[in-house]
Every structure is written in structure tokens, then in C-alpha cells.
């Protein structure tokens, strides 16, 4: 019972990260039908920028809380700029190209960003500054830390903010209109270019926050940290029904829980044949299963496949 509660807590924390990153995929996909394969790398860049800025500022004598706050701010701004540039330079010229073209570009951008990061930050794992208090709590035999609470609360706050933006502002209305039918939205005076750019910028800001949280949680950062995370977040988006914001959030949490429970119990389930290092396969099995049996996702409307 203790392990179950513990796994649920771990899953919720991990899932809130997936949810944040999944939102970036789903925003862009909903509006322009593109899988922004490089999104995971934006998360990585966010973490590494925050790490460097915080490190440099504390070295310059600033207190950790201030250096950390500035580090996060710079990371968010950098990622927003990065998201904007990605769209502007790589994807916009391909908006009317055959489907596979922007996808191949996205794979290319992912590789470019990873290797640039490796050149700038090196191949080694880096210690991520301990931005949040180390306090730990214990309830019913399960342990959790202040960092975990902060992560879940931050994710929740970001999602509420995003929901407000999408459902209560003019920009949000333009985004929803473009997602429904970009041609008609364009005729009604929506500036499609700006809406698409906004989707990238907002998604990237969320990715930056996610990157900082992952770094702070594992206290480690690395140029490859975004790749697997990105794939899993994409899985979460598909699980919830890609293009559907609420679905991305639910899908993220659900995937986090599946992974945590799966890793916790896979040994028992397979009679000890498979151990917890198979944790990573759950996401892919979920992905394949969802796409095969319910391509519109658990919460997606049944739009079927746009042939």
C-alpha cells in the first residue's frame, strides 16, 4: 500500500511535467497539424540556459533565490525566442509542402539543437542548482518533497493560465478559430502567421518552465535530456487526443501514472523477467496501443484521420 501511494505521487509529479510539454505539442498540432519534433529540445535548452545563468549569477555573488529567478526568466525568454525562430525559419516556408517535408525538417532541427547544445555545454551531465527548498514530508508512509509540491502546483498554475488565454482572450479566440479552419479564419481577418507564431512562443515558454522543473527535480541537466521527454510528452498528447488542450493535460498525468505504476509493478507482473529498467517502454506501448485502437485519443472528438 505504501508503494502504491508512493508510485502515485511519483507518477503525478512526472505526469505534470509531461502535461506541460504535451501542451506545446498539442497547441502547435491543433493549429497547423505539425508534429514539432524539436519541442523536446526546447525543454532541454530551457534547462541548460537556466543552469548557466543561475550558475554565473551566483558566482557573481547574487543570492541563490534571485539568481534562480533570473535564470528562469532568461530561460523562458530564450525559449520563446527559440520557438519563434524555429517557426519563422524552419517551418513557415514549408506550410504548404507535403506532410512529410516539415516532419523531416523537424527531425533535422532536433538534431541541430542537440548538437549545438553539446558543443556549448559539453557531453557531461551537469549538476543543476538546487533552486527549491529541500524540505521533505511524509504522509501515510509515502515520502514527497517540497520540489514535488512546487512542480505540481506550478504545472497546475501554468495550465490554468493557458486555459484562460485560450478561452478568454482575443488571441485565444483567433487560435481556436485557426485550429477549426485556418482558411476561413484568415478570411475573417485572423492573422494566421501571428497565431501560429504565438502557438510556438507559448508552447516554448511552457517548455522552458518544464525544463527548469525537470532540472531542479533530478538535480541534473544534459544535452540529451529533452529527447526522451519530448517523445513521452508527445505520447501524452496523443493519449489525450492531439489538438485537445484538456486532453494533453489529462494525458500527461495519466502517462506519468502509467509509467510509475508500470515501473513499480512490472517485476511482479512478469514474474521477475522484466525489471524496472523497462520503464521507458511503457510510453511507447501506450502510444502504439492508442494509435491503433483509438487514434483520436481518449478525450479527442472522433475526427478520424484526415486522409
Amino acid at each position: 500500500m505504501e508503494t502504491l501511494l508512493q508510485q502515485l505521487i511519483n507518477g503525478l509529479v512526472q505526469g505534470s511535467i509531461y502535461a506541460l510539454v504535451a501542451l506545446g505539442y498539442t497547441l502547435v498540432y491543433g493549429i497547423m497539424g505539425l508534429i514539432n519534433f524539436a519541442h523536446g529540445e526546447v525543454v532541454m535548452i530551457g534547462a541548460l540556459v537556466a543552469l548557466s545563468v543561475t550558475g554565473a549569477l551566483t558566482a557573481a555573488g547574487l543570492p541563490l533565490w534571485l539568481a534562480g529567478a533570473l535564470g528562469i526568466a532568461v530561460a523562458i525568454l530564450t525559449c520563446m525566442a527559440l520557438g519563434w525562430s524555429l517557426e519563422r525559419i524552419a517551418y513557415r516556408p514549408l506550410r504548404h509542402a507535403p506532410r512529410l517535408t516539415p516532419l523531416i525538417t523537424a527531425i533535422g532541427m532536433s538534431i541541430v539543437l542537440q548538437n549545438l547544445a553539446m558543443m556549448l555545454w559539453g557531453r557531461n551531465y551537469m549538476q543543476f542548482p538546487a533552486l527549491f527548498p529541500k524540505a521533505a514530508f511524509s504522509v501515510g508512509g509515502a515520502h514527497f518533497t517540497a520540489v514535488q509540491i512546487i512542480m505540481v502546483l506550478t504545472s497546475a498554475a501554468m495550465m490554468i493560465g493557458l486555459a484562460f488565454l485560450v478561452y478568454r482572450t482575443r488571441l485565444g479566440m483567433a487560435m481556436r478559430a485557426t485550429a477549426q479552419n485556418s482558411q476561413v479564419a484568415g478570411l475573417m481577418g485572423v492573422n494566421i502567421d501571428r497565431v501560429v507564431a504565438a502557438a510556438f512562443v507559448i508552447g516554448s515558454a511552457l517548455a522552458a518552465v518544464a525544463g527548469v522543473m525537470v532540472g531542479a527535480y533530478y538535480e541534473i541537466a544534459h544535452y540529451q535530456m529533452g529527447f526522451m521527454l519530448g517523445l513521452k510528452a508527445f505520447t501524452a498528447a496523443v493519449l489525450g487526443g492531439i489538438g485537445n488542450l484538456g486532453g494533453a493535460m489529462a494525458g500527461g498525468i495519466l502517462l506519468g501514472l502509467i509509467e510509475a505504476l508500470g515501473a513499480g509493478y512490472i517485476g511482479d507482473l512478469t514474474g521477475g523477467f522484466l525489471g524496472s529498467h523497462y520503464q521507458d517502454i511503457f510510453a511507447f506501448i501506450v502510444l502504439i496501443a492508442v494509435l491503433v485502437f483509438r487514434p483520436a485519443g481518449l478525450f479527442g472528438e472522433k475526427t478520424g484521420e484526415r486522409a
Binding site: I35, R99, L100, L103, L231, F234, T235, V238, D280, I281, A283, F284, I285, L287, I288, L291, V292, P295, E305, R306, A307
Partner: peptide, 17 residues
Amino acid sequence: KLRGDYLAIVTLGFGEI
């Protein structure tokens, strides 16, 4: 039967598995 871009991700996941 999936659309092209989904297939790409699924095959990627399969490779990782």
C-alpha cells in the same frame, strides 16, 4: 493504416523499444 506522421513516431518508438 495511420497517417504518415503518426507512423513516423510509432516506428521511432518501436526502434527505441
